[in-house]
Amino acid sequence: MLYWLYEQLSAGGHVPVLNLLKYLTFRTGMALATGQLVVVLMGSRFIRWMKAKQGKGQPIRADGIERHIVEKAGTPTMGGVMILAGLLVGTLLWADLTNVYVQAVLLVTVGYGILGFTDDYAKVTKQSTAGVSGLVRLGLEALIAAAAIALIIVHPHAPPEQAGLATSVAFPLLKGLLLNLGWFYVIFGAFVIVGAANAVNFTDGLDGLATVPVMIAAAAFGFIAYLVGNFLFARYLQLHFVQGVGEVAVFCGAIIGAGLGFLWYNAPPAKIFMGDTGSLALGGALGAVAVSTKHEIVLGIIGGLFVLETLSVMIQVASFKLTGKRVFRMAPIHHHFEKLGWSESTVVIRFWIISVMLALLGLATLKLR
């Protein structure tokens, strides 16, 4: 919105101070600050309102950690509404809303946020951990992701030399290799986005556990978007230049700001949970950013913690169905460590450290080519 105002007024040179808005770094910083401010300001009032509306709060797994059933009972959920509010205000104010990549990531984020809200609402009203049917939710997630990817592929402003890039997969460490999947890329990209959304959803099981790794991943991808969207930096680092994708850095800044604001209330002991409203929206957002920047595989490194959480669930289910035995004491894996005697804060902080290490490893692939 403000970027549009800059474009309209700067032509005549009437308001020189608006020239700050042409700088991507300035708008990214302002999106971060705006997102954080919005969430912090609405936090206390929203939490009180949600407590009054939800009564018993989010249902806790009956087969879960015993002390969670006592300590976390009554804590309201749907805190993802706060995150989405900060993220959207920060993005809508400071990003170029005519940019197709911004439109695509917003489509996924809002769409997945609505799906998550529907799921949370079903859980709260039924007082059950089973919300919307898994197959129905996965199907809708895939449709939303496919629509966003199709929007990018048919982008009318892409230069001719980028015609094949939109449907190609780039590989880290291999500077010249591109695998053009054609329209089959829609399936691949949708898999990345849906997988990222549900991976973050699995990770969101302890106070602050998912919030900080999401911010770390958003910071890493904001940096990647800035580099990939800048022709000079992309050429120097031998990255595939994606014209216009630098604008996604503003969106990533808004994610970080909204996450910081939410962490104020989600830090142990959490006053509110993000719920599926937040976890699906944030995971989908990371997946959409990875697709936009052509760093889908690098997402598996930077978001390695989310991959680990997902794999632990898949291994547990497969093992139990095939052998009747469990590999982990409880899945996802963060609960396994709690069962081993680790305190919640120990699990959370150590997983944060792992997220930082994986983000640095992912960023290292930008230079190792």
Rank of each mutant, 00 (worst) to 15 (best):
L135E: 09
F117P: 04
K53W: 07
G57T: 04
L179F: 13
F233K: 07
I149M: 07
A267H: 11
T277Y: 07
Q103I: 10
G362D: 05
T167D: 09
T323E: 09
S312K: 07
E141F: 07
G304R: 06
L286Q: 10
G176M: 05
S343Q: 06
A163Q: 12
L138Q: 02
I302C: 13
L181C: 06
I255Y: 08
I353C: 03
E161H: 15
A217P: 02
G29Q: 09
M330S: 09
K51M: 08
L37M: 15
G116W: 09
Q8L: 15
F337L: 13
L9M: 11
V242F: 02
V108D: 00
A281L: 10
A249R: 07
E338W: 04
D204G: 03
H68S: 03
G261F: 01
G131F: 00
F328N: 08
L232V: 13
Y226Q: 12
A31I: 01
P172C: 08
L227M: 15
S343C: 06
D276P: 03
Q243M: 12
G131V: 10
A148Q: 11
G253R: 01
F26H: 06
A331M: 02
A150R: 15
W183I: 05
F337T: 11
I65M: 08
R67T: 15
F231T: 11
Q36N: 01
A122F: 11
H14L: 14
E309M: 01
S128A: 14
A150C: 11
K72L: 04
I256N: 09
L106D: 05
L361S: 03
G284F: 05
A142W: 14
M42A: 15
L18E: 02
A249T: 06
A318W: 08
G189T: 00
G275K: 06
L97C: 10
V124T: 08
N201R: 06
L9Q: 06
R27N: 13
L173D: 02
A122G: 04
A225Q: 02
A281W: 03
V70K: 14
A163C: 00
V169F: 06
T323P: 00
P160H: 12
F231R: 13
A11P: 02
V102I: 15
Q36Y: 03
L179C: 11
F46N: 02
A163Y: 14
L322W: 05
L299P: 04
L308H: 02
W264M: 12
A85D: 01
E338S: 10
L209D: 09
I301A: 00
D120Y: 08
V100N: 11
